[in-house]
Nucleic acid binder design. Structure first.
Lengths: 247, 247
DNA sequence: GTATTATTGTCCCAAAATGGGAAAATAATA
DNA sequence: TATTATTTTCCCATTTTGGGACAATAATAC
């Protein structure tokens, strides 16, 4: 079965990437009170992967991660954080690309640098869901958001990479005040609370949550009110400090 | 100037290491109320480095880090934690080995895989100072403990690697109860407090520190008392949970 | 208009955790 | 037996957190 997958120069590593080393990013978004991750479907398969890529010989790893992210989302300024490097000896031995992609030049692929053992540097990105333009890469034919609680089969160890990214995000949520990067410019207090509840996986109390957030003096209350329903309209807030600092 | 530095097979990568990828470990110890790091002196130079090494083609990165650690300290079971991967494009362009080591086969070295750009996975280890047997590696002629507040000139970006490791250690100190790995089996409360004060860099209150530690129900009080001076002898404690869990 | 309903925003008090001073205990020495 | 230095415990004031109740308000129902 011949599939028209264009790996322009990839198989021969014409772009001069560092061998055995990759970058994978868990792209988090928040939509309809759910935490989402952007995944790529490996060509004509039921197997999905994180947004990944390789590091050029003269390129820093942070710039490489940002470049890859730009290509998958269209976004220039994203909050990005390196959280763990995955290097178990057989992390890429299950659900390998060679197993999934059986297009024409299979033999060429199996022997190429792409089919070797890889150590992958894990990043997670926090983006404004509505601003993302999901774009597949040469290994995939589709880019789609998935609910974190309903993930599809995934390539390699990408499932564990997501789990660990969520763990890191949780740990950083309070200390680094990082959640705002998942929301649009302005938001209501219930929206912010829902975000925190979803990430942490626990319900929080309205009154105490509001007290804590306002007490930190990081929110600016926009005077205008929100369009609404048959009840009191919530205020809109914006985050005082500019979003996006990490990396 | 010809120096007798034996890099048996290193220059030609006979051991089949993954190119462009290294591991560096910040080995922390605690001695005389000071936080120490174990450093290696690059052959006949005033420049020092962390304990580092490379990953074999079929070897996981955690086992590789443990192997390197074993070679430098003689210890089998050490608390080891991966904290950050350093991959700035010119992180290895200052104080390079080629600059420092000017032994006979300089030309061979300059052209070898060792003199290329490296991405380094950073670990930190917490060890019982008294149990370590410091041992240099093929690139160094001396292994020595340094006070964290009095570090010598260091190769590459190893100084920043230490700074960032300390940052991570501080962040993990309370949540992961990791400090006990720096002490011997049994210790007194003032010793434990001194450890915390030294790592965190702030003075703590005796009474409240003790309340907090005892309140967590992780310490077992050994009934025997400590040999002493002209005052009340402190109790000895031991950590209930077995040390060494990470990695 | 007035009452109703569903939320949001605010207030208050009890419980728990923390800061910080002082007293009790004790091992050696004078 | 008193003194000294240090460890351990106790206690109270302050701050933070948990949790219930009430006031405010935007649309709808009457």
């Amino acid at each position: 079965m011949e599939r028209n997958v264009d790996l322009d120069g990839f198989l021969e590593n014409k772009q001069n990437f560092i061998p055995h080393l990759s970058i994978d990013s868990v792209i988090f978004g928040f939509h309809q009170d759910q935490l989402k991750v952007l995944l790529l479907r490996v060509h004509d398969s039921g197997v999905w992967s994180l947004s990944g890529g390789f590091v050029r010989m003269e390129e820093g790893i942070d710039p490489a991660a940002l470049r890859i992210l730009r290509e998958r989302t269209g976004l220039e300024n994203v909050y990005l954080e390196q959280y763990h490097t995955f290097g178990h000896e057989d992390r890429s031995k299950k659900n390998t690309l060679a197993d999934i992609l059986d297009f024409g030049h299979t033999e060429e692929f199996r022997n190429s640098w792409l089919n070797k053992r890889f150590i992958s540097i894990g990043y997670y990105a926090l983006v404004d869901f509505s601003k993302v333009n999901p774009t597949p890469d040469p290994f995939s034919d589709k880019a789609e958001w998935f609910d974190l609680k309903d993930l599809p089969p995934m390539i390699f160890d990408h499932r564990e990479m997501i789990d660990k990214a969520l763990e890191s995000l949780r740990a950083n949520l309070d200390t680094k005040l990082v959640g705002f990067n998942l929301l649009p410019e302005t938001f209501t207090m219930p929206e912010l609370q829902s975000l925190y509840e979803t990430i942490l996986g626990v319900p929080l109390r309205r009154n105490n949550f509001q007290r804590k957030m306002l007490g930190m003096d990081i929110l600016e209350r926009i005077e205008k009110l929100y369009t609404g329903a048959a009840n009191k309209a919530p205020y809109l807030y914006k985050f005082k400090a500019p979003n996006v600092e990490a990396v």
